[in-house]
């Protein structure tokens, strides 16, 4: 593994191509940052199920489900326990990335 950083290829790429980030992807990225923040904030008061997170954030349940399952994959969230109704409760992962 090298110790000295090589040149920034992204800077050269941007300079050479003059390409701008796609607006739709920028919009999605900004929205995702908000979703992540809202979910983590909702979980600050304790572990919650997906419908409970949806209720706390005002987001549709399927959308919350998709993000929660993705954030579990990326270790931002972790499952804690299962309720009698078959739902999992989630919390923000310790040492999350």
């Amino acid at each position: 593994m090298s110790t000295a950083r090589k040149r920034s290829t992204i800077a050269e790429f941007r300079k050479a191509t003059k390409v701008k980030p796609p607006e739709n992807v920028m919009r999605i990225m900004r929205e995702q940052a908000q979703v992540r923040g809202a979910i983590v904030k909702a979980l600050a008061s304790g572990p919650k199920t997906i419908p409970e997170i949806a209720q706390a954030t005002g987001m549709p349940v399927p959308k919350v489900a998709w993000y929660v399952l993705t954030f579990v994959k990326y270790k931002t969230l972790e499952p804690v326990e299962q309720t009698d109704e078959g739902y999992w409760r989630y919390k923000a992962a310790s040492g999350r990335r």
Binding site: I50, V61, A65, T70, Q82, E85, Y87, W88
Partner: peptide
């Protein structure tokens, strides 16, 4: 699988 359990994609409930 990237999921931690068998759940419904709609709301995370274990299907029965």
């Amino acid at each position: 699988t990237s999921w931690h359990a068998i759940v419904r994609p709609g709301d995370g409930k274990e299907p029965s």
